[in-house]
Amino acid sequence: MSTISRDEVAHLAGLARLAVSEDELDTFAGQLDVILDSVARVGEVAADEIPPTSHAVPVTNVFRTDEVRDGLSRGEALAGAPATEENRFRVPRILNEEA
């Protein structure tokens, strides 16, 4: 059962910010298909009344007191940045949202 098309792979790559090549589109479409086919069996057993588990430990209400802690110095914060300017992270132009 083939479930995932090349176009869908391209759409997913867009959502995931991956500039995949044409070749990769085909490879991924094929591989995702195989994987999805084999994992599709999870749907066989999980009946409606089974609650989902999101966390492996049954813990609730873990809170921090509202007290300031030392963070990073500006130097430490910016040290790994590909580019900086005026003590800020410099990034390429952001695609225009207002157009």
Binding site: R64, E67, V68, D70, G71, R74, A77, N87
Partner: peptide, 25 residues
């Protein structure tokens, strides 16, 4: 006093990138 998920000061108008830590970065 602090941010939602880390202990950095929740403060308006501080010098850029001086109220940051590994969590909020």
């Amino acid at each position: 006093a602090t941010k939602m998920f880390c202990g950095c000061a929740n403060e308006f108008g501080a010098e850029p990138n001086t109220r940051v830590c590994p969590v909020c970065l």
